[in-house]
Amino acid sequence: MRRDAIVIKRQDNVATAIRDIPAGRMAEVGVGEQSVSVTVGMDISFGHKLSLRHIRSGEEIIKYGTVIGRATRDIQPGEHVHVHNVESTRGRGDLA
């Protein structure tokens, strides 16, 4: 099966696109040897992240099995996860 995105660690709540994924596509997301399907709500570019499940505002964003930031608003499954809805728990380069 041709995957569209991959999850680095099983506990991650986001996946990273390994190709450009058009809005509305049922994306194949590789989790270890398996894959799951997530319908993406908007265009997701190569290298960008998409949510695997509903993430509430204030909840931690997990990638590499580790916290990479915190949601600044509710995020739907399949939504683009980036600087518009996540902030660092350390310091934000784009606001520096």
Partner: peptide, 10 residues
């Protein structure tokens, strides 16, 4: 950021 990295942690 353009490439998809959101935070310095990531």
């Amino acid at each position: 950021i353009k490439g998809g990295l959101t935070t310095i942690e990531e």
